[in-house]
């Protein structure tokens, strides 16, 4: 699975994308968030962290499947 990263999440990981090995068996958005918090403690310190699947905000119970575009959405600050 490849995750798109923006803003502070890009800086935390040090890259615009994050490749997660299939053996991590991440099946839902919630599992992805838990995995990220374990791997990158700095993500757990953010005000919030949303996940977008195919460029729509996704709930924690949403399943993740191959072929989807998955992105991390740290707190937004446009305007």
């Amino acid at each position: 699975m490849e995750i798109l990263l923006f803003g502070i999440t890009r800086e935390i990981v040090g890259s615009g994308t994050l490749k997660i090995k299939p053996e991590e068996t991440i099946q839902t958005v919630g599992q992805l968030k838990a995995w990220l918090a374990g791997q990158y403690p700095a993500m757990g310190k953010l005000s919030s962290l949303a996940v977008a699947v195919d460029s729509e905000y996704a709930d924690d119970d949403q399943p993740l499947q191959s072929g989807q575009e998955v992105a991390l959405i740290p707190p937004v600050s446009g305007g």
Binding site: F6, G7, I8, E11, K45, L46, S47, A52, A71, I73, P74, P75, V76, S77, G78, G79
Partner: peptide, 19 residues
């Protein structure tokens, strides 16, 4: 809307609203 701004000061910079 997923847009982010980084604020730059004389001595450092921060992602607004991140923390």
């Amino acid at each position: 809307v997923p847009i982010w701004k980084k604020e730059y000061y004389q001595d450092n910079s921060v992602w607004v609203n991140a923390h």
